[in-house]
Simulated scan of single mutants.
Amino acid sequence: MSIDITVLGEIKVRAGEVKVQLGDRRQRLCLAILAHDLHVVEYSRLMRCLWHENELPVDPQDQIQGYVRGLRTALRATTPGGDKLIRTVRGVGYELTVAPEQVDRHRFARLKAQAEACEDKDPGTAARLAERALTQWRHATGLRGGNPLADSRLEAITSSLQQEHRSVTLLRIRAALRCGRHRQLLPDLARLSTDEYGAEDADLTGLHMLALVRAGRSHDALAVYERHQTAIDELLYGSKPTRELQVLKEKIMRGDESLTPDDKDYADYGRDEPVEPPTTRPAPGGVSFSNHQTGEHAKSFQAYEMNVHGEFEDE
């Protein structure tokens, strides 16, 4: 029987058409960590992810063993031999022995790597692969749920996932723009730019401006620039747009024809593939981000600010 595990959305396991009952929040989270890593996970890592230091139980290792027993029981109830999917490495920890393709986090990683590998030579394929990767991000809970600043237990995992999501989102937009799909991108760009922190993101702002110019909306592109400038100034007083954005604005104002290639200069996008949409949007129920530079010469620092909404719910 096939097993499918999701950790980018609701933490759940399906055995064929049957949803496995995974138990309470920490027990589900224990499985999610094993599925995220897909190698031997030490007790110490599980303890750091499951409890804050000041809330450790008397015997956390025994508690983790109890969670694993509960997970094995749940898996055995729906899948013949399912209890054997979690391997004990005595004295070290546990390993979930499923194939990467059975976990949405690893499907996402594979599609991301494929998109990155072909972005330069085949932007159309890269854009479609990136879009497929993003469909793995569904419900706004799971390992990416909650604000990592408020829940430091998962910060190492959530911050990495957030950065990967941002990277694929920008790759998809860049590649699709190279294929002349600026009009198709405008709804998503408008939504992303108005999500929390979206107006502060320099890379996203530049891509949004470029898409608007190519759609014949230069005035709106300049308005996006002004909104970005206001947003970063409010975040950190005295911040200025990056030099790249300033140059883009100047080109728009003087009507630089290099910003609007002829149709023949665009790469081939290829045929649209049917893509199952996410159950919920990545933002605001998922990821918002910013990439801003500050300081007199926009050099003092460059940072990613990610905000993820949604909390684990106790059952």
Results as ranks from 00 to 15, higher is better:
L46Q: 06
L143W: 10
S258H: 05
T279K: 15
T135H: 12
Q21S: 12
E53R: 14
W137Y: 15
R107L: 15
E257L: 12
L170H: 00
E311P: 00
P284E: 07
L186Q: 09
L186C: 05
Q293G: 10
L154Q: 11
K264I: 13
H139D: 13
H39G: 14
G285L: 15
D83M: 03
T230M: 13
L171W: 05
Q302H: 15
V18Q: 13
I232N: 03
L134E: 02
L154F: 12
V41R: 10
A215M: 06
G310R: 12
L134H: 05
G238L: 02
L189S: 07
C49H: 14
Q102F: 08
N307A: 12
D268F: 13
H228Q: 02
A211I: 05
R48F: 08
R25F: 08
T6V: 08
K112C: 04
E244T: 11
V308T: 15
R87A: 14
A127S: 13
P100E: 09
V18Y: 06
Q102E: 15
L46G: 10
R166F: 03
L34D: 06
T135D: 09
A202F: 01
T294Q: 02
P57V: 07
Q102R: 15
V247C: 06
A175L: 02
A74Q: 06
L71N: 08
P60L: 09
T294G: 01
R28S: 03
S239N: 07
R138P: 02
D195H: 15
D83L: 01
G180W: 11
D104A: 13
A223C: 13
Q136K: 13
L177V: 00
